[in-house]
Amino acid sequence: MLNRDMVEFRWHGRGGQGAKMACMLLADVAGLEGKFVQGFPEYGPERMGAPITAYNRISEKRSTVHSNIYYPDYVVVVDESLLDSVDVTGGLKEDGAIIINTPVSPLVMRERLPGWAGTVCTIDARRISEELLGRNFPNTPMLAAAVKVSGVLQAERFIAHIEESFKHKFADKPQVIAGNIATLKRSMEEVQIG
């Protein structure tokens, strides 16, 4: 984990993929760990499939800043197709990392990130989600990968808090909790850091 007072994440996704939800969940869980948090979305057009950005600030001291994040420590790309249209590594700190939802390895993915010499991480979020949740919900695997790569939260405690949070969120459909927890654990194992 980066030794900084504040860790900043930028999420890139498409409307409907749950990037905002993952961002909010990260804020919630970090809050339970006693951190000061911000989790906020930036919407473009209100429609499914449109690119959206979401942001997290996680810090030991309260941050009063309410602007977007231009120099993130970590970038999470929930939809690989955004690499063609969005400058996903823009402003990313040199000692930070980018985490991409893709079946290919970090080595292969690096070729698609000209100008980025820092850490590249990949995870096949779609396959993991389809295997364990029965559908493509890429946000849960990406959240787990973001936590694993950044080390911003301790893994076991993160899982425990998420479980607690899901018990509230899915009080009316508890059957989805076990699959989501299994997805988080598998994703933390599978994410490749290159």
């Binding site: 809050g31 948090v37 911000q38 989790g39 906020f40 309260r62």
Partner: peptide, 12 residues
């Protein structure tokens, strides 16, 4: 309150 910036941001 500020739309989105405050209304949709999760904070402590």
């Amino acid at each position: 309150m500020d739309g989105f910036i405050t209304s949709h941001a999760v904070e402590n």
